[in-house]
Structure formats: C-alpha cells, structure tokens
Design a protein around this nucleic acid. Structure first.
Lengths: 122, 122
DNA sequence: ATAATACTTAAGTGTCCACTTGACAATTGA
DNA sequence: TCAATTGTCAAGTGGACACTTAAGTATTAT
C-alpha cells in the first residue's frame, strides 16, 4: 500500500519521518489509558469530555494523553466551538504494524533458510 | 509459566491471559532499547554479552531489559553453561498485532457503514 | 589451581512521566 | 447578562523506570 506511506508524508522524507515517529507511536501505545482511548475512538469520533467520563481521572490528564496520541499521529483532534472532537487517524498505525512486520519477515526468512538446510539432501 | 504458547493457542483462558499480557507486550515495545534488542534478535539467536556490545550501556541494564522482554513473551532465553542465549518468540507478537487489528476492524466497519449511507439512493 | 569469562543480584540514583490541582479562557444556553 | 459547559494552561507531586555500581556465583580456559 503506497497509500499508508503517502498519508504520513509522501516522498523520500516519509521513511525518515516514520522512523522518527515510531518511537512516539510505540511510546504512546505503551500506556494502558491511551490504548483505552484508542479503542474507544475506534468506535467513532467523540468529544474530550465524553472520552474522559469513564476514565477515572481528571479531564486535564485525559487531555495530556490526547496530546501525546496526536503528536504520535494515532489520533486527530479538531475544535469546533467549545468542543474538541477526537477521531482515529488510521494511517498512524501503519508505522507500528510495519515495524512488527519488518521484524517478522526477518525471522521468517531466517527460519526458512534453516528449513532449507535441514531439508537439503547431503 | 505454563506456556506462553498456550496464551496464543485455543481455550477460553487464552483470551483472558492475552488481555493481561497485552499490557506487558506494549510496555515492552514502548522502549527504544528493547525494540533495538528485538530487531537484533530477529536476525537470529545471540548471547547476552554479544547483545550488549553495541548497546552503550552496562550489561546489567541489558539483562534487565531482557527480563522485561521475556516476561512479556516476546523473547525466550535459555542458559547453557555460562552463556545465556536469547531468541525471538514469534508468538509473542501476535498479541500486539491482534490488538491493532481489532481496532482497525472496528473503524473499518464503521467507515464502511458510513460509505453505505452516503451511497444510499434516497 | 588460577584466572578469565559470562552472567546474576541487590541496592542506589536521577529522570521521566502520569496525574492532580487550581486558575483561566472561550463558547453556549437561559 | 449571567451562568453553566467545555476545554486550556502551568506548576507541582509521587512513583515508576532506566541505568549504574559493586559484589557475588557459576562455568570454562590455561
């Protein structure tokens, strides 16, 4: 999918940017509360205060989490009037998935070679 | 630890255990150094000290990271003689991938319904 | 037996980070 | 206009966490 790459930046700088971002993405997902927020947003856009409602912590805390999620590119927020609406940014997740995918392809290639060796008829 | 494999396999308890583990998995991947370790191990098994060599920090620090990675199920280590060999535990990653996949399927279903509505010929 | 290697364990340290509080700004409803 | 809603900002706190040092154990090499 050239789409995912394009969505983040496009061109050569995209890879660089993604590599810089992967840190923020995994750090963002490393927190329980932020994952809860992501799951909730996966169900659809919602305001900050409605997001905070079930989250046993102050509104300010939730806003801080949202800032981290937005800087990581996993979430997009937009303010209309006095209410800020938050939504998932699907492209943001591709960095994480790609990182894991890269690792997997590494060890799979290795295991394949290993299998070939064992199957080799010497 | 009755099988990290079990957590991935079938059974009802598997889901529960995975849900408990997802916290540790994402927390483990949230650290830059630990991701570097994972990438290295994706290339093949290696001893602790050889892992530590390029990692500008003490051996003890690396061992601590390895403990976290092992508890999260992403890495398996085994000691033979005086050398502990570390290797990737491929199954450990499926928890993370599945979590992201679950989110994605949520928002995709939603976007599909949205598309249907817009395409509806009223 | 001695020394070197490859960890292991425990305790301490500093920093980052999640969260709180409280004061403030902007928008909307009555 | 007044008040309630919705969010913003700054500063502070406590705990988690990455990392260090130092002393110890087990294994292998000489």
């Amino acid at each position: 999918m050239a789409q995912a790459t394009r969505a983040v930046g496009g061109g050569v700088g995209a890879l660089v940017r993604q590599k810089a971002n992967i840190d923020r993405v995994f750090h963002a997902l490393g927190d329980r509360t932020r994952r809860a927020i992501v799951r909730k947003l996966s169900q659809g856009p919602i305001s900050v205060s409605r997001l905070a409602e079930p989250l046993d912590m102050s509104l300010a805390a939730v806003v801080q989490h949202l800032q981290i999620l937005e800087e990581s590119g996993l979430v997009h927020t937009e303010k209309a009037g006095r209410v800020r609406t938050c939504r998932i940014e699907p492209a943001g997740f591709s960095a994480a998935e790609q990182w894991i995918g890269d690792c997997r392809s590494m060890w799979e290639r290795r295991l394949d070679r290993l299998g070939d060796l064992l199957a080799e008829p010497n």
